[in-house]
Design a protein around this nucleic acid. Structure first.
Length: 598
RNA sequence: GGCCUCGUAGCUCAGUGGAUAGAGCAGCAGCCUUCUAAGCUGCGGGUCGAAGGUUCGAGUCCUUCCGGGGUCACCA
């Protein structure tokens, strides 16, 4: 890595010139901005204390030293306190020759270490997936790939919330008003069908509440005493008591939902290595609670409920077991975390969960800390922002939820219309065309969501959010397709790939457009690394956009196939291969496919 | 109310304490006889929410204030 080498040499220069030791963190190395000459820029202000000279003189001293002591640095210039270094042509040539055809460029081989367990999706089985889940799924899946590209082993896990009062609500409504309706009898996708009855429950429940209020009962009281909610609670008790009839209804309806989910995941192009079900894990936390009680980390109140006092960590007291002995959400998560730890001894337990649960995960880690589990700090909450609609937060009861299946279908339709309008698929078979619409539609959606910093809330306007021009997935896919087209034409003209591979670019002065593309390609490994450290697909997305922009400029300004100088022509073809590889791999990190033609 | 978080162009978003704050969309004006025009080039558009402070240097760090969001359940 040239950056690392520069850092070492700069420290060495300061030592030699001013007899001062500086730390690597004091070396501020950055890419030279476009409007100046050079490849890397060093900010010399921090060194002026050592040199006791003006920034300009200091920069000149160090620049001279580097040119003399590093073959890779061929020249420098100084503007104000900035030392711009020019990296030699032979370095760039070498970099190009070594990597242009390496289709693993930027990816670290898998290391032999403990895995990262990444949990994402975590749906409830009472309603279909929506826009919020889409962000969650895309983030989790992409982060998993980014970690793998950094050499980590990754286990992708899903934790399905398949039990609880909300599930019983759907079951009850179906039992009462469903008239035996099934996915096959109605043609409704299983998760949507169950979701339909969840909504029906809510409507009927509201009616009952209103009726009770009109009889003079208070709102709170009405909500608690409506017959439907009482019946749902009774159903939950029966479920916990393993009542045959309830269990088989539960199995039937959940089965429909899983089929529906599977279809959605498949369309979205995401998958898991392992799926956990809360119905199987919800009791796991209880033995941990016993353990904690015995160790004195937890305490039991007079009513039988169990609590942990986290005031020493600046948090509150937190309930871990209800007075009736049943477990709460936190208890379950304690259990599943311990289970995963036992199963995988992970390097990190990553939870892709919305930022509304930040407090929950702080507590989760602290509880383990208090219970003397040294691995508590391997719990990492990848907290992402909410997806908001123009009218505000999505509310399922108000019908403002953007459904995942609907949205993807809409994307495919839009992709088809746009693509047909542009006449892009006139010579495609209908299968090829459908395939392309899906690639483009999903590419647009995924890129739109992943390019935003995960931490931040984002706004999604269904009618105008997704464009196919500018900083979008299709723009990048288009750039890739153009590259493939050039390469196909090259083969057709007998500009053979092995000929491309054999030639290098020694003694050829690069054009600015060529150099700029090469420079951006050079950054890719560093970007992958940074994205891995910060678990941020957005860094990858922004990088690809920059690369695609620069390549399009090159493509527009400079001829490739008509270049008569063989060395130049082959170098440009190699640059196409190189850029194509990086775009494809970077898009793969986002879980986005690229088409050969579009 | 306590704690957390966000506030950058009309809109959506970038911007490891460094140079003149950038993209896309929207608007306007150009570029297809040429490797795919889902592209390229140019123009206009900013009190980086406000005020202080730290620093050679602040959109970025600290304090206060204003505004939005989240959270503080024997819900998940």
């Amino acid at each position: 890595m040239i950056e690392k080498l520069l850092e070492i040499k700069i420290i060495e220069a300061v030592r030699a010139l001013y007899s001062t030791e500086i730390l690597p963190t004091q070396v501020q190395l950055q890419k030279t901005r476009k409007d100046f000459d050079g490849d890397y820029t060093i900010v010399v202000f921090p060194f002026t204390k050592s040199s006791r000279k003006s920034p300009e003189t200091t920069a000149n001293d160090i620049g001279t030293y580097l040119v003399e002591h590093m073959e890779q640095v061929s020249a420098f210039n100084v503007i104000k306190g900035f030392l711009n270094l020019v990296i030699s042509g032979s370095y760039w040539n070498g970099f190009y020759a070594r990597n242009f055809s390496n289709n693993k460029f930027g990816f670290v081989p898998q290391m032999d270490s403990n895995p990262f367990v990444v949990e994402y999706s975590s749906p409830n089985t009472n309603k279909p997936l929506h826009l919020g889940h889409i962000r969650n799924n895309l983030l989790g899946f992409s982060v998993a790939r980014i970690l793998e590209a950094n050499g980590h082993k990754v286990i992708r896990v899903n934790l399905v919330n398949d039990r609880g009062i909300h599930i019983c609500k759907s079951m009850l409504a179906w039992k009462r008003w469903g008239d035996g309706e099934t996915p096959s009898s109605s043609g409704i996708k299983g998760d949507h069908l169950v979701g339909k009855y969840y909504v029906i429950f809510d409507q009927q429940y509201k009616k009952e509440i209103e009726k009770l209020i009109s009889l003079g009962i208070s709102k709170d009281e009405a909500a608690k005493s409506a017959p439907l909610i009482l019946e749902a609670q009774e159903m939950l008790r029966k479920w916990e008591a393993n009542d045959d009839e309830i269990i088989s209804l539960w199995k039937l309806m959940n089965g429909w939902v899983y089929e529906g989910f599977e279809q959605t995941y498949q369309t979205m192009g995401i998958s898991f290595d392992k799926t956990y079900y809360e119905s199987k894990t919800y009791l796991l936390g209880k033995s941990l609670v016993d353990e904690g009680l015995q160790a004195g980390a937890l305490h039991r109140r007079a009513d039988g409920s169990v609590w942990i006092d986290l005031s020493s960590d600046g948090l509150d007291e937190k309930l871990l077991l209800r007075s009736d002995g049943t477990s709460v959400y936190m208890t379950q998560d304690l259990g599943t975390a311990q289970q995963r730890y036992n199963e995988f001894t992970p390097e990190k337990l990553v939870y892709v969960v919305g930022n509304e649960q930040e407090y929950h995960f702080q507590v989760l880690a602290k509880v383990f800390k208090h219970m003397g589990k040294p691995w508590y700090d391997s719990i990492f909450h990848l907290s992402y922002g909410m997806v908001e609609l123009p009218e505000g937060k999505m509310k399922s009861r108000e019908g403002t939820v953007v459904d995942a299946d609907d949205l993807m279908e809409e994307m495919f339709r839009t992709a088809e219309i746009t693509t047909r309008e542009l006449g892009k698929v006139d010579d495609f078979s209908s299968e090829e065309a459908v395939q392309l619409f899906r690639i483009i539609g999903l590419g647009a959606l995924k890129y739109f969501i992943l390019k935003v910093d995960p931490k931040k809330n984002m706004l999604f306007n269904p009618t105008e959010s997704i464009d196919f021009n500018g900083n979008t997935g299709p723009f990048i896919q288009y750039t890739y397709a153009r590259i493939q087209s050039v390469l196909r034409n090259a083969v057709q003209k007998d500009f053979l790939p092995n000929e491309i591979g054999a030639l290098q670019i020694d003694n050829v002065e690069l054009l600015p457009q060529e150099k700029e593309v090469l420079r951006i390609l050079h950054q890719f490994p560093g970007i992958v690394n940074e994205a891995g450290d910060s678990l941020s697909p957005a860094l990858i997305a922004n990088y690809i956009y920059e690369l695609a922009c620069e390549f399009n400029r090159f493509y527009h300004d400079i001829t490739i196939l008509k270049e008569t100088d063989l060395v130049r022509r082959n170098f440009r073809l190699g640059l196409c291969t190189f850029t194509g590889n990086v775009i494809k791999n970077a898009m793969w990190l986002l879980g986005i496919d690229v088409p050969q033609r579009m």
